[in-house]
Design a protein around this nucleic acid. Structure first.
Length: 564
RNA sequence: GCGCCUGUAGCUCAACUGGAUAGAGCAUCGGACUACGAAUCCGCAGGUUGGGGGUUCGAAUCCCUCCGGGCGCGCCA
């Protein structure tokens, strides 16, 4: 999304017109490398026919550029531009020049953004959906970083309210059984197997530490609960780590409530006349800020609600001076959008800088069987099940390959396949193929390549590599497969930028698939190594493809194997 | 009932946010190994964009209205 300021150049009409001019790849590649609608957008402003204006732009402006080989006017007034091969080759050399920084930009210039995702209650295992939000959050964080943002990845742990309490009670009941002590298991309690795991660990680690007096049943509930939740959080953290999802901050809801901070918040709200009492409860006027109903802050029984925590948490985020806040929530939480925005406005934040992405739910599909994700045990897959079934790479690729807005069908049998039907393998195989070429080149000891270079094909800063780049000629490509591959290699930065603009990690997946496809075709139709010689320019393209594939896979957090 | 998302090829999804002939991958059918990895490549076929109206030079995209699917609407978190 890159947020309003960066996305829109401004309100004033002139800039608005300019910003609606596009320069992009045409839908149909035969039209050229780039196309612009400039003539159509500007035509009415200068009172000319789009086609006439297009010809004017073509002759007076575009032909001045050395990089341009040809321009044609087509359709209602599109200007199609074909670039010179020599220019594309220069750009490929640039890719190696930049290498590590290739694909990144500094559009956001260190702007602080916090991305909160998963934030599942620490009262049970993660389900498949959490995996999707986790992967989405992680990849989006990567993408934001590449666009220059200073990203804080955060998980909000709900360890304070009723649910956390019920969970502790469950664990306590099982735990005390180990000492032949009876404690009622709450009705509507959590599934017993997860609870037992936690109780077992507490027993192993702490033995009877929490039991202060066996006869009077005196029990250290506070410490017990804290540890029980802590263990659950470590389970969750382990699961997420297994798919490469990690956080900078694990923020505990309970930490909001120390040292009279709740009272301070109440004072703050009361002073601003944002609260009122009704039916023995304290309410927050969230409707004044666009929410669809007012919310209770303090219940009839005197306890704060979850909404109260939301307010304090948001104030806390504000204090930490994040310029932008991004939430990734499951579709079952879409009711939050208006309330979070309402809180943000009420405490003086710009609600436009609080952005909420809603991910649609996930179904597991195996053949024709459809399973809905479920948190209840015995029904459906947990995230752990899925990871052990198909592995980290497939989980990450499949979870990121579609738009957030579509319900995702996760096809387990497809994810397990090791063939071209499986997009993960297709992309990884392209990378492995370049590795294979490099090895082959080393073995065949070609006359026109020296040994230093072969051993340093990954070391773009080495002298041998730089010498190699100097040998590349600027002559035209021999065929369209060489040119298309080169062109595709150059599109990574645009995709990284657009993926951020639209909060769409799947742009990267699609780009990688296209690049892999372009490479496979190139590979099939062009010989790189012949008997005693290497085609240097083709090797250059293969190496550039390798660099970009690696970079792209890294954004997705999917491994790039040398061999498969 | 109200709100959010959604309906595109047999299946899973795209379409650069209003642009050119709606594109990919699976699946189906045909073709290519004496070959740097056939885990690949090439080709054929597949569509009234759920239905109907409207807005304009131009609509899968925006508006209205039906129909279908998912998810929300607690003094739970």
């Amino acid at each position: 999304m890159l947020f309003p300021e960066i996305k829109n150049l401004g309100e004033d009409s002139c800039e608005k017109v300019l910003s609606s001019i596009s320069l992009e790849e045409p839908k149909n590649r035969e039209f050229g490398d780039l196309t612009t609608n400039a003539a159509m957008v500007l035509a009415s402003k200068v009172r000319k026919k789009p086609a006439d204006l297009a010809i004017l732009i073509k002759d007076k402006i575009l032909y001045k550029y050395e990089e341009i080989k040809d321009v044609s006017v087509a359709g209602p007034g599109f200007l199609n531009i074909k670039l010179k091969d020599s220019f594309i080759i220069e750009k490929i050399l640039d890719v190696f020049e930049k290498h590590d920084s290739y694909g990144s930009n500094d559009l956001a210039k260190g702007t602080k953004i916090q991305i909160e995702y998963v934030s599942s209650n620490p009262t049970g295992n993660l389900h498949i959906g959490h995996g999707r939000w986790g992967v989405m959050g992680d990849i989006l964080s990567n993408i934001y970083s590449l666009n220059g943002f200073d990203v804080c990845r955060e998980y909000y742990v709900n360890d304070y309210g009723t649910q956390a309490k019920i969970f502790s009670e469950c664990v306590k009941s099982v735990y005390l059984e180990k000492f032949d002590m009876k404690y009622p298991y709450p009705e509507e309690g959590y599934p017993r197997d997860t609870v037992s795991n936690v109780a077992d660990i507490l027993f192993e680690k702490f033995a009877d530490t929490f039991i202060k007096n066996k006869k009077t049943l005196e029990f250290d509930d506070i410490s017990f609960s804290k540890n029980a939740i802590g263990i659950m959080v470590s389970f969750i953290s382990d699961t997420l780590k297994s798919i490469g999802v990690e956080f900078d901050v694990w923020f505990f809801e309970s930490s909001l409530y120390g040292e009279g901070s709740f009272e301070k918040t109440l004072d703050f709200l009361k002073k601003r006349k944002l609260t009122y009492e009704k039916e023995e409860a304290l309410w927050f006027k969230s409707t004044a800020f666009g929410d669809d109903k007012d919310r209770v802050i303090i219940r009839k029984d005197g306890n704060p609600t979850y909404f109260a925590s939301d307010i304090m948490y948001l104030m806390n985020k504000k204090e930490r001076a994040f310029e932008y806040l991004l939430y990734i929530l499951g579709a079952d939480h879409h009711g939050y959008i208006s309330r979070l925005k309402a809180i943000a406005s009420s405490i003086g934040m710009d609600s436009k800088k609080v952005s909420i992405v809603i991910g649609q739910l996930v179904r597991i599909v195996e053949g024709r069987e459809v399973q809905k994700m479920s948190r209840r045990k015995g029904k459906g897959f947990t995230l752990d099940d899925l990871v052990s079934e198909v592995g980290k790479d497939a989980v990450r690729y499949f979870f990121s390959m579609n738009s957030f807005d579509t319900h995702l069908d996760f096809d387990i049998s497809l994810a397990k396949k090791k063939s071209s039907q499986n997009p993960v393998f297709y992309v990884q195989y392209a990378f492995a193929r370049v590795g294979s070429i490099i090895r082959k080149a080393g073995e065949s000891r070609p006359g026109n390549i020296d040994a230093d270079f072969i051993s340093s094909m990954d070391d773009y800063d080495s002298q041998a590599f730089k010498d190699f780049l100097l040998r590349i000629d600027r002559n035209d490509f021999k065929n369209s497969s060489e040119r298309n591959l080169a062109w595709t290699i150059l599109l990574l930065p645009d995709n990284v930028r657009d993926a951020c603009k639209s909060d769409a990690p799947y742009f990267i997946n699609q780009y990688l698939y296209r690049l892999a496809s372009e490479f496979h075709y190139f590979y099939k139709h062009n010989k790189i190594i012949s008997k005693d010689k290497v085609n240097i320019k083709r090797l250059l393209l293969a190496l550039a493809a390798r660099l970009v594939l690696k970079k792209g896979l890294a954004i997705l957090g999917v491994s790039a194997p040398e061999r498969m």
